[in-house]
Design a protein around this nucleic acid. Structure first.
Length: 514
RNA sequence: AGGCUCGUAGCUCAACCUGGUAGAGCAACGGACUCUUAAUCCGUGAGCUGAGGGUUCGAAUCCCUCCGGGCCUACCA
């Protein structure tokens, strides 16, 4: 479906006419392939080294074939320079009428090629009078894809950038343009990709098996969040998009795999914010015969490896803080952390007492008297402690009420063996010694279901929220195990210095246009 | 969902407070120019000012509603 020509901008109409003109001259506007044998960065690197500089005029042996988008164009009569941008960077190309032939130069190149078009250039590397390493199009110069829409033109000097495309809506809706035009955005997503591949390699090297578990689930679980509901037609059954991978991955430990992990999308039907996208990427990893202390060490090593792979240093700059992901991180028990911030020890306190402290002594506005103990403690923690933890900190030993899938603490009554990693005031990782006692697990599920049914007065049958098959699996025996979950998007934010989750997700969810 | 804020040419912005024919740079188009690089120089065209309503002799500007974005709050293991 193409828009009526009356709706097209002047420049769009113009480019469609150029496409016609190209075809009439026998120039294919969309040919099939181009042999690329060099990229901008390698050419620039090679010739930046004095040892590799060709002698004056001795350029014939440095033949390259490159391809990319025209991002700037300077025509001076019978010769012209343009900037060619490929995945690795931008290199200048020099074209001359006498190299290409007058017909092609005057009637095709200067008339019918535009900024935004994708071209292939075969020519020779040389250094201009101003010292810039440049490719002189001599052997071949072809259009590879005609752009029918004008590409925003960003100009820059070494010091400053002009006309930068900054409109967030434009950038998110037309991410392809954002990427084409903003080098630093490409870099963020390159780093995100490297983050994931480094993590995958790290886990593979430690003998973990990458697996895939269902996204479509008849019973959702493993976290507390609203799911997306869908329906399978042939089976005529309701299904949910998973909110966590946990319960399926642990079934695999029952099956005999000793280390499994999955990197994939979870879906939560909740609000959007600069920390929340409805679909987001989680890494979850489970290792048999280990506990949460072992997992803390692994987490330290994993994040240090990822940070140094991306940045050659374990220190990253985020929201004005220097954050050091190297070394050993502070480990602070949950209630000690609260006591340290507020001076109040809530260990062993009941819901009434916590409510009293939260509402009256701490003045928290978002608590009310019928909240459960877990939610109250969570509220106190996230209001008083979490924002203060800038450097990576393991918060350990959470109350049972907050953690229905974690094993009870081997020493401390009422606590579980769990840690969250907090960096820059945000939860980055969550882990525990996994609960593998099926009776205990059933009791926790029941308590959780009751709590949920009490809070949400929808006509949900609490029993339907219990994953009976998971309990059946545990009854066959799951080895003691440590589990870890890392929110990839939030980690990517910290490692790439982005303050909105939308800036580390290629296509964040937006309302439809118009 | 609530509060604040923004939406003007293909892109980046001005004009809005204090109502009076909507302007600049880039991009585009015509011309000059065979080492330019924010190329330069001369000239030209380009807009339902997010949409709809109101106030007014007159609305980009003031008011209301709606649509979309951003930030904050709420929701959020």
């Amino acid at each position: 479906m193409s828009p009526a020509s009356s709706e097209l901008s002047e420049q769009e109409q113009r480019r469609r006419e150029e496409r016609e003109a190209l075809e009439q001259r026998g120039v294919a506007p969309y040919p099939y392939a181009w042999d690329v044998d060099a990229h901008a960065d390698e050419i620039l690197d090679t010739f930046d080294d004095d040892l590799h500089q060709p002698a004056d005029g001795d350029v014939g042996e440095y033949k390259v074939s490159i391809a990319g988008r025209i991002t700037g164009l300077r025509v001076m009569g019978g010769s012209a320079f343009f900037d060619l941008q490929d995945e690795t960077g931008t290199i200048q190309v020099y074209v001359r009428s006498q190299d290409l032939g007058e017909d092609f130069y005057d009637e095709v190149f200067t008339e019918l090629f535009d900024i935004g078009d994708i071209v292939g250039v075969e020519g020779f590397v040389f250094r201009t009078g101003m010292g810039e390493v440049t490719v002189r199009a001599a052997a071949d110069f072809q259009l590879l894809a005609k752009a029918l829409r004008p590409l925003p033109v960003v100009k820059e000097t070494d010091e400053e950038t002009y006309y930068e495309v900054t409109d967030k809506e434009f950038r998110y809706r037309q991410r392809y343009v954002d990427l084409a035009v903003n080098e630093d955005v490409r870099e963020v997503f390159r780093q995100r990709s490297e983050l994931i591949s480094t993590m995958r390699r790290f886990l593979d090297d430690r003998g973990c098996l990458e697996v895939e578990t269902p996204v479509l689930q008849p019973v959702y679980g493993g976290a507390s969040a609203s799911p997306f509901k869908t329906h399978h037609n042939a089976l005529d059954m309701p299904l949910y998009l998973r909110i966590a991978d946990e319960l399926y991955l642990k079934r695999l430990l029952v099956g005999g795999f000793e280390g499994v992990y999955e990197i994939g999308k979870d879906f939560r039907n909740e609000g959007l914010s600069r920390f929340h996208n409805p679909e987001f990427t989680m890494m979850e990893c489970y290792v048999a015969y280990k506990d949460y202390r072992w997992m803390m060490d692994l987490t330290e090593e994993l994040l240090r490896t990822v940070a140094t792979t991306l940045h050659d240093t374990s220190t990253v700059e985020f929201e004005g803080h220097k954050i050091d992901l190297g070394g050993n991180w502070a480990r602070v028990p949950f209630f000690e952390a609260i006591q340290k911030e507020t001076g109040i020890d809530l260990y062993g306190a009941d819901a009434d007492r916590v409510y009293d402290v939260a509402a009256n002594e701490l003045g928290l506005e978002e608590v009310d008297a019928d909240m459960g103990l877990g939610d109250l403690l969570d509220e106190v923690f996230s209001e008083t402690v979490e924002p203060e933890l800038v450097q990576p900190t393991f918060v350990t030993d959470y109350p049972v009420a907050l953690s229905p899938l974690a094993k009870k603490h081997r020493e401390k009554e009422g606590l579980v063996e769990r840690f969250e990693l907090v960096v820059a005031g945000r939860e980055v990782a969550n882990a525990f010694s996994e609960l593998n006692d099926p009776q205990d697990q059933r009791e926790r599920f029941v308590a959780q279901a009751r709590q949920r049914a009490a809070e949400v007065d929808e006509d949900v049958d609490p029993e339907s929220l219990i994953d009976e098959d998971y309990l059946r699996a545990l009854e066959y025996g799951m080895p003691p195990a440590a589990g870890l979950g890392i929110g990839i998007d939030r980690l990517a934010m910290i490692l790439t210095g982005q303050e909105s989750i939308r800036d580390v997700i290629l296509f964040p969810l937006l309302r439809p246009e118009q």
